[in-house]
């Protein structure tokens, strides 16, 4: 099977010969092909090309994709800084469009054709289409987009002291996500678009499961239902960070048929299968830090453990790091993930 066939076969519900390999890895690609990290985020052509080359080299089956976790601030009028220097891995916010309730009251919905990173993301998706790759658009989950429009600490305070403001900003984030997905659907056909949503801010590293239930769950659920109602077939959710206590709540959220859910090392793959195995392809979850700082043997062993734990998930499994592949990962360690698939990932 060829690489892009494999991920698509799983989405169709067909059998695959082996466990596919999936990655979010923009910064690593830059290093791999000799571009700068900023090329990956502000030059669609270079970003796409660097990923294609890297995917070929390491036998990666999914992607290429474009996006980053701080999505939302720039689109609503805040400032973002492109990665520069030796240690930057992704764009980061310089300031936020909303700091006060007055800002919130005055906030206008962005024009999705022109706002922030979206023109570049659209250019990237046109390259995906041209090359016959799955068309994806990467956004934050509802709670993370809200927490990128205003500082996360403001969102946290509002949840407890000004719940109306918290609900308002979550509603705005939700409407925006739908606006973007509608634009992509109108351009490429809903059935061809896979929204990629990252939700680090709703992790239990930050909020309680009760707060998740009140402020994240209803918005994420409704947005996903509406996306599926538009004709979207598959949603990829990156359920980032410590999310164990949120799992029963996540399980109430429709992700498509099948959906794709990816986890950090904090959530065991067997737990992921328990909650999502019947409806979603499970992706994960080699510890990113280990891929950067471990030995090749350690990466190989950890990849093997993931494969053996999740290979037989009912709707399929893809091996992936627990979050973005650290850009400074040794090249050979990255290769070890593929090697583990070669040795343990084939279906008999």
């Amino acid at each position: 099977m060829s690489n892009s066939d494999r991920a698509e076969a799983l989405l169709r519900g067909d059998k695959v010969d082996r466990v596919p390999l999936y990655h979010f890895l923009l910064g690593f690609c830059a290093r791999n092909v000799g571009y700068t990290t900023v090329d990956m985020y502000n030059n669609a052509e270079k970003s796409f090309q660097a990923q294609l080359w890297t995917f070929e080299q390491y036998g990666i089956d999914g992607g290429p994709d474009y996006g980053y976790a701080s999505y939302g601030g720039w689109e609503f009028g805040g400032e973002i800084k492109m990665p520069e220097g030796e240690w930057q891995q992704a764009p980061s916010h310089v300031n936020f469009p909303v700091n006060t309730e007055e800002d919130l009251a005055a906030l206008a919905m962005p024009d999705v054709k022109t706002a922030g990173s979206l023109p570049l993301a659209m250019e990237f998706s046109k390259l995906q289409q041209k090359h016959g790759k799955p068309i994806t658009v990467t956004l934050g989950g509802n709670f993370s987009v809200a927490g990128n429009i205003c500082p996360p600490s403001t969102l946290c305070r509002w949840m407890l002291k000004k719940p109306d403001a918290a609900h308002r900003i979550l509603q705005i984030a939700s409407d925006h996500i739908l606006d973007v997905v509608r634009y992509w659907s109108d351009t490429f056909g809903a059935e061809n678009v896979i929204p990629n949503l990252w939700e680090p801010m709703a992790a239990n590293d930050i909020i309680s499961p009760k707060q998740f239930e009140k402020f994240a769950l209803p918005y994420i659920k409704e947005t996903n239902e509406k996306m599926l109602g538009m004709g979207i077939k598959h949603i990829l959710y990156h359920i980032c960070g410590e999310q164990n206590a949120n799992m029963p709540l996540w399980a109430q959220i429709p992700m498509g048929d099948p959906g794709m859910v990816t986890f950090g090392h904090q959530v065991k793959l067997s737990t992921a299968i328990e909650y999502f195995g019947d409806s979603c392809i499970i992706l994960g979850n080699v510890l990113p830090a280990l891929i950067q700082t471990g030995t090749p043997q350690q990466v190989y062993d950890a990849s093997r453990d993931c494969i053996l734990e999740a290979k037989d998930a009912p709707r399929g499994f893809m091996l992936m790091p627990g979050c973005e592949l650290p850009p400074m990962s040794p090249f050979f360690n990255v290769y070890m993930m593929k090697k583990a698939i070669e040795d343990f990932g084939y279906y008999g």
Binding site: S153, R157, L160, N204, D205, I206, I207, S208, Q211
Partner: peptide, 14 residues
């Protein structure tokens, strides 16, 4: 003990 999370901590700090 995970009875308080970041939102509570921020308000306690205030």
């Amino acid at each position: 003990r995970q009875e308080y999370f970041v939102p509570e901590l921020l308000l306690c700090a205030d």
